[in-house]
Design a protein around this nucleic acid. Structure first.
Lengths: 217, 217
DNA sequence: AATGTAATAAATATATGATATTTTATTATG
DNA sequence: CATAATAAAATATCATATATTTATTACATT
């Protein structure tokens, strides 16, 4: 149920994915005619998609001059990381407070799946990036999913993707350290240790930021 | 310079405004053909606009079933108010910390203009709602404008509009009390009293929430 | 000859109207 | 009264036409 049927939504997913994983590189111009051919959709459909992505901040729309993949900058990355800390830690705290059995079960499952994949990822990061992102997202979403604010969850998911877009350009996997952080956050959340969970999550995001900032050096 | 030339951007502004001020009522279906006629634009242009507004959360898009003005609910309003507190107070604190002369000047000006208009507004709120919103926004923007995070400012402006959409349906003006809060925030910001400014801003938003919640009773 | 400006051509974005597909409403049938 | 078949309405998509921007060329000035 709730399948994505329309060309529009398929195109949206495809282009967004290509931006996040760097197939469509920062700052490049998105020429409508090119996109039309590579994504097999009409101009109107492409424009709808780009307008949506522009609203979310993955694409920059310049009136009558066209669309561009949003550029990278150190400041932008720092802003995004800090906002992610603000929203995700807040959501995590709410989530833990509201914590119920379903949430806990889902959290255990998603951490387990992430943990399994982390081993694979260490072998060949580049190859497994998409998979890794899927399970990392699954875990972080499970953490905050019980915050009872759809508005907050929406904002958070966009911010997560923006953060990850930068991270996906870094060639080395942060690995061991990040896994350890995941584990601490996970266990703290189960124990309802809001403070430890939130503080470790903040560290986790900011250390990821540091790791990613190397691309600007 | 930087004028809004395209039909698309004009239509976007118009429809957004009509949603915020309740001319397009919550939950109603936005039939493309009707909009096409009332806003004098082609179907594709209307669709572009609605896709943008859907991304921002003013419109709900249901695949192959069309577009609807986002519905009202008590929970949604509470979520929005709380998120506005989180983001706006955070931005205010940053803004005050970075506070410079330009920021201060702009703040004085915008508070002055708001103060002048508040007197007018008391006479005939319904008539002056649009004007009031413009100056209230001017003041709140001036407060946070120095936070040095474009990402934060973008999110904040959308949240502000969502909050105000609810408030615009309330017939009575909160008046005196809100004006007093504005004044305290303003003076605290000038004195660089971050704590007082932030705490009063939080109260201000939450009292506005209470006032608006009456529409659900 | 080098540089700046104006005129033209090409590329591109914007906007529209026509067609195809899907959903919703209506009618017919068991 | 429920279900199936049909008709109507609405959405989604596309192909084409118009307007704007960008690139190229020609011309004039120092």
């Amino acid at each position: 149920m709730n399948e994505k049927n329309t060309i529009s939504s398929i195109t949206y997913d495809d282009i967004k994915k290509d931006i996040i994983f760097g197939k469509l590189k920062p700052s490049i111009k998105l020429k409508l005619d090119n996109l039309k051919n590579s994504y097999n959709a009409s101009l109107s459909t492409i424009r709808e998609t780009l307008n949506r992505l522009a609203s979310e901040g993955f694409v920059k729309a310049e009136e009558q001059r066209g669309f561009f993949v949003n550029s990278f900058s150190q400041d932008d990355l720092i802003e995004i990381a800090n906002l992610r800390v603000l929203l995700e830690c807040h959501a995590l705290e709410l989530s833990i407070k509201n914590g119920d059995t379903d949430w806990e079960g889902n959290l255990v499952a998603s951490h387990h799946k992430l943990h399994l994949l982390e081993k694979e990822t260490q072998k060949d990061y580049k190859k497994n990036r998409e998979e890794w992102k899927k399970y990392d997202w699954g875990f972080h979403l499970a953490l905050v999913s019980n915050c009872r604010s759809k508005n907050l969850l929406n904002l958070h998911s966009i911010l997560y993707d923006k953060y990850i877009r930068y991270q996906m350009t870094v060639t080395e996997y942060r690995g061991k350290e990040a896994e350890e952080e995941h584990k601490i956050i996970f266990e703290a959340a189960l124990k309802r240790d809001t403070k430890l969970a939130s503080e470790t999550l903040e560290k986790h995001i900011l250390k990821g930021l540091d790791h990613t900032l190397t691309i600007f050096k």
